[in-house]
């Protein structure tokens, strides 16, 4: 039953994405793409892109998107509920103990070990998105396949982010505008 599958897949995404935000990327990748095949890699990159420009956490955005794609709006609701349910339960338990004992030390040690692993997993998922953005997912076989424009755009975006630390939305929108601009320039060039 599709609703149950959606619910449990996103329940796991919610349960295992520790560290917020981008930590959900590797979970979505393993649950939704590898295990279920609900998204293609290129749709995954699009979901990440859109989630940067819509309100809310990536995990919920992805849950809604995949739910809509697989089973319409009710699918979106089921996936989203599945995604946030572990949070609600676990945070309420933590809040209960916190108000009772006012101590978080027990969690701290576990977190110390988890943090580097979470960084590694985010790095891995980011590498997938990077390869997809530059070469459509696989390493290029020859130099001719490498799009210099994409690499140039990547370097410019990256430098802007590092130097001026703007809101990432503006950089992403700027990159989109550059993409459209290049599309028209490219068309003009092939016409003449």
């Amino acid at each position: 039953m599709i609703y149950l599958q959606l619910f449990f897949s996103f329940f796991q995404v919610g349960l295992f994405s520790i560290g917020g935000g981008y930590a959900a990327l590797p979970q979505i990748q393993s649950q939704v793409i590898t295990a279920r095949g609900w998204l293609t890699l290129s749709e995954f990159a699009d979901v990440v892109t859109m989630s940067q420009m819509t309100p809310g956490p990536i995990a919920i955005n992805a849950a809604t998107f995949v739910g809509m794609k697989v089973a319409g709006f009710s699918g979106a609701v089921v996936s989203t509920v599945g995604c946030v349910l572990p949070s609600i339960i676990i945070v309420m338990i933590l809040a209960y103990f916190y108000t009772k004992y006012n101590d978080l030390k027990g969690v701290q040690g576990m977190l110390n070990g988890l943090r580097p692993a979470v960084v590694a997993m985010i790095a891995s998922a980011s590498l997938v998105v990077l390869l997809l953005a530059l070469f459509d997912g696989t390493l290029p076989q020859s130099v001719a396949e490498v799009s210099l424009i994409s690499i140039l755009l990547l370097v410019v975006c990256f430098l802007l982010l590092r130097i001026f630390k703007p809101n990432p939305i503006f950089v992403i929108l700027g990159a989109g505008t550059a993409g459209v601009g290049w599309y028209f320039v490219d068309k003009l060039l092939t016409l003449t």
Binding site: L130, A133, A175, G179, V180
Partner: peptide, 25 residues
């Protein structure tokens, strides 16, 4: 074309995030 451009932008954002997080570790 816009989506392809934005993907590159998102990739840049992710590299930035990963570098910052790795530095923290």
């Amino acid at each position: 074309a816009a989506m392809l451009g934005m993907r590159v932008g998102v990739a840049a954002v992710l590299i930035d995030v990963v570098i910052t997080m790795t530095k923290g570790i």
